[in-house]
């Protein structure tokens, strides 16, 4: 399985390290030709407005949308969650997302940087162990559509969601040494989806 990390802006390096720890050999994706080479994609943390804009300017925006439509497995953390959401609240005027995940997210919902926090939360992957979740100017999910599974919450707000091949967290597992979230994406989201295609 070839996994790419969208490398237009954000904490690309951390996602690369987490993916390597999960036994995959990731590559960075900035160009359309590089996107063609990968089976699954990670959208990193960063500024969602910047990433969406660069994707559009460099002609990879509609291509990612097309790949989402044909079932490419994608994981997005924080800004990546915003980029996967069908609807964004508190967005910059005219802010675009790739969409595909039938959720409404609120940007910076937990507040400004002084409100950024870390916490141990349960994650519904079958293990009862808590996961260290790091929230940085993080969004939360305000509405989930039909078929969207909520895998983690903070104060009743969904912070990890999945719908078929799309998976998103409003926290940053790539900033910790616990690779459970990335492993979940590879083993439970991406691998089954790609095997079905074969």
């Amino acid at each position: 399985m070839k996994v790419g990390v969208l490398a237009l802006q954000g904490d690309v390096r951390e996602h690369i390290s987490s993916l390597i720890a999960c036994g995959v050999d990731p590559s960075t994706v900035r160009r359309a030709s590089e996107l063609d080479q990968v089976d699954a994609l990670v959208l990193p943390g960063g500024e969602s407005t910047t990433i969406a804009q660069l994707a559009e300017v460099f002609g990879i925006y509609s291509q990612i949308k097309n790949r989402i439509a044909v079932g490419m497995p994608i994981y997005g953390s924080c800004a990546g969650m915003i980029l996967l959401a069908d609807e964004i609240l508190d967005a910059k005027q005219g802010q675009k997302s790739f969409g595909g995940l039938d959720i409404t997210v609120r940007r910076n919902a937990f507040g400004r940087q002084v409100d950024s926090f870390e916490s141990d939360i349960p994650f519904a992957d079958g293990s009862s162990d808590l996961i260290r979740a790091v929230f940085i100017r993080a969004p939360w999910v305000e509405r989930v559509g039909e078929g969207v599974e909520v895998l983690a919450t903070v104060d009743t707000h969904p912070v990890a969601v999945r719908s078929r091949t799309l998976f998103a967290t409003s926290f940053h597992p790539e900033l910790t040494a616990d690779h459970r979230i990335h492993r979940y994406f590879i083993e439970e989201v991406a691998r089954p989806a790609l095997e079905k295609v074969k």
């Binding site: 490398a7 237009l8 802006q9 954000g10 904490d11 690309v12 390096r13 951390e14 943390g45 960063g46 500024e47 910047t50 924080c78 800004a79 940087q113 002084v114 409100d115 950024s116 926090f117 870390e118 916490s119 141990d120 939360i121 790091v134 929230f135 940085i136 100017r137 903070v154 940053h172 900033l175 910790t176």
Partner: peptide, 22 residues
């Protein structure tokens, strides 16, 4: 489920999110 603010990870992590940017 204690929420801790202002940790080194949260502060340094914020800068990680700015990488590759202006």
């Amino acid at each position: 489920m204690a929420e801790v603010t202002g940790t080194a990870r949260v502060k340094r992590g914020m800068a990680e999110m700015l990488k590759g940017g202006v």
